[in-house]
């Protein structure tokens, strides 16, 4: 069964790279590039995994994560958080808010794919 991954990220090149990697794994990739509407998209698509950037325009990734976890429908969805701010306190905050995994940019392709595999298994 094809797994569905929702990629919420505003940097076009990163979106492109991740899409390439995910599609190569034969996963279905959905893309959303703004904070606004991100939560709706999650409940709408019911993806097997959400890849969520912390720094998004208009609404921050932490807030979106919080909303995802509040929603009954999406509360169990695994969320992989990506951040470019390599600060320990952000990791802690993300884990407390219910992130399944927290990765710092730049990431290794192998590593992120392996993690995603684990999360969607």
């Amino acid at each position: 069964m094809t797994k569905k991954v929702l990629l919420i990220e505003d940097e076009p090149h990163i979106v492109e790279a991740l899409s390439f990697l995910l599609r190569r794994e034969s996963w279905q990739v959905e893309i959303h590039n703004d904070g606004i509407g991100a939560v709706n998209k999650v409940s709408e698509l019911t993806p097997d995994l959400v890849i969520l950037d912390v720094m998004l325009p208009n609404i921050g990734g932490m807030e979106i994560l919080h909303d995802i976890r509040q929603n009954q429908q999406t509360a169990q969805t695994p969320v992989l958080m990506l951040t470019a701010k390599g600060q320990q306190k952000d990791r802690k905050a993300a884990e407390d808010a219910g992130a399944s995994l927290f990765m710092t940019k730049p990431f290794s392709n192998q590593e992120i794919i392996a993690s995603i595999r684990e999360l969607v298994a």
Binding site: H13, I14, A17, A84, K85, T104, K105, P106, F107, N109
Partner: peptide
């Protein structure tokens, strides 16, 4: 943050 963003694309 500003440095890591382009570096992410480059590395990927």
């Amino acid at each position: 943050h500003e440095l890591r963003t382009p570096m992410t694309s480059i590395r990927a």
